[in-house]
């Protein structure tokens, strides 16, 4: 991060599994280019080596989209995607690191791993968003974000394509906003406009 950059930027980390892709595409489509935030997306997928998501996302948003490479610097107004077959960690405020260790919740990348890492480094500047999915991954992660003082959003299980993942998160309690898919982007925009208190 540049030295003179504002140090209160938000870090929005979005996790999803089955049924989340469409929601993510709609969210990033509605994001303005100048939120001043960092966006990190972790999606479960098969071990496709092609950067399919990077292409899919790029055509939907005017933000820069990057599938993360090891030690890549963190830049504002950018969407970073966890690469297939690696856990994505935040090394410090300046950059990412990758980890190809054991699967967590049968997943690599694991949403919990990235959420916990974002919570640890960015604390109350973190905004966690957990979407549709058939796996419990992400529930503990979003709890870490809340415990670190960050803000938490979960897709409304009633309208999610697969309700299991958001339900797991809600069962752990303390979620700030439970929203239908079409309201998530607007809510993220509002959070990014607010300074931490």
């Amino acid at each position: 991060m540049e030295k003179d950059a504002v140090d209160d930027f938000k870090v929005v980390v979005i996790g999803g599994s089955a049924g989340s892709l469409e929601v993510i595409l709609n969210i990033i489509h509605e994001l303005p280019v100048d939120t001043g935030a960092v966006f990190i997306i972790v999606v479960h997928r098969r071990n496709d080596k092609d950067s399919i998501l990077e292409h899919l996302f790029s055509v939907k948003t005017r933000l820069t989209v990057n599938e993360v490479e090891d030690k890549q610097p963190i830049t504002l107004n950018t969407i970073f995607i966890a690469p297939p077959d690696y856990h994505l960690l935040v090394e410090n405020e300046a950059g990412f690191s990758l980890d190809s260790s054991e699967r967590v919740n049968y997943s690599r990348p694991s949403i919990d791993v990235t959420f916990q890492s974002v919570a640890e480094v960015f604390g109350k500047r973190a905004v966690g968003v957990l979407l549709s999915g058939a796996n419990a991954d992400g529930a503990e992660g979003i709890e870490s974000i809340r415990n670190a003082g960050g803000y938490t959003i979960v897709q409304n299980p009633a309208t999610a394509e697969v309700s299991f993942m958001p339900l797991q998160a809600i069962n752990l309690g303390g979620i700030d906003a439970i929203l239908d898919a079409e309201h998530i982007a607007g809510h993220i925009r509002e959070r990014c406009a607010q300074r931490p208190n």
Partner: peptide, 9 residues
């Protein structure tokens, strides 16, 4: 070693 990962280990 990269700290984030080592900490996890």
């Amino acid at each position: 070693y990269a700290r984030a990962s080592l900490k996890r280990r």
